[in-house]
Amino acid sequence: MAASLSTDIILPNPPPDLLLPKHAEFLSRYGTSKEDYEYCMTEFLRMSGMYWGLTALSLMDKLDSVPPSDVIAFIQDCFDETTGGFSPAKDHDPHVLYTLSAVQIIAMYDEFKAVDCSKIVSFIQSLQQADGSFFGDQYGEVDIRFSFCAVATLSLLKKLDAINARKAADFILSCQNFDGGFGSKPGSESHAGLIYCAVGTLSILKEVDRINSDLLGWWLCERQLKSGGFNGRPEKLPDVCYSWWVLASLTILGRQDWIDQKALIKFILSCQDTSTGGFADRPGDVVDPFHTLFGLGALSLLGYQDEKLLKLKKINPVFCMSQDIIDKLEIEVQILPGGGAS
């Protein structure tokens, strides 16, 4: 167990190897027992859970361990013909969060004919507001996460022209703060997860050059703590998911080398559960598919390979999906070159 400090932790030494077969096993086993407590209690985010698990499996080239027909049937089951949005699970309401997850899975399996995609486009269109922001659903909550979901969904469907892209970007920039970061809404405090949403949206819209990359890059590299892990805001504890939010953002800004990559790898590896497989937020905590994806995703961004030269597939820093899927769809995102040029 890791000893806790107030704003950082001490890692157990040395970190375990990367246990890919165990992670694949953990993910394929996850959700096989439908009566399982965790499974039931996370029903409200099932669609995203599927996306996390399947993407993590695809990074390990183990997507075939789940029957594709089951996945597609689930997706179709969650499609709401009336609104054009996806719900997290049957009998739940559609929301932009789960619509992106569903479309990511559709793209992963190249199953764009599984549902009427033009309805998805109308759904996203209906959520955009006059200031460029997006509602999550008809109940009116606004959040920068929803902007990312909306824009990423349309990009995967090749229908970015269905919304006012300029205003979508303007809204993102209205959420920028004194430290160069972004919060959930105009006026909200900067947070690494929301920065990822902001930078990712601007990358898809090819407007990353509208932000001060040196200032934001500095704030992001200051998220790395002595333990090597990243926190999401100043003076908070590290967490594996921020490895992804921070590193992916730095990658898009062309400043991935501003952090200590070796120390980060050590932190991520320490968050594995060596008996059950899977990653937790911090060493010694309970594992889940969410942290497993973001742990593996960050290792993939770093091009990590172990002594046996086991390697993960390359991940796209904006879509958090295997790069070959993005290439196949011929989607280009904006990645700044760094090195003083931007």
Binding site: C221, G228, R255, W258, I259, D260, A263, G339, G340
Partner: peptide
């Protein structure tokens, strides 16, 4: 602050 050495390298270059 060796964790951010490449950041400082870029800053120095600037």
């Amino acid at each position: 602050d060796p964790k951010r050495t490449n950041y400082y390298n870029d800053l120095r270059s600037k």
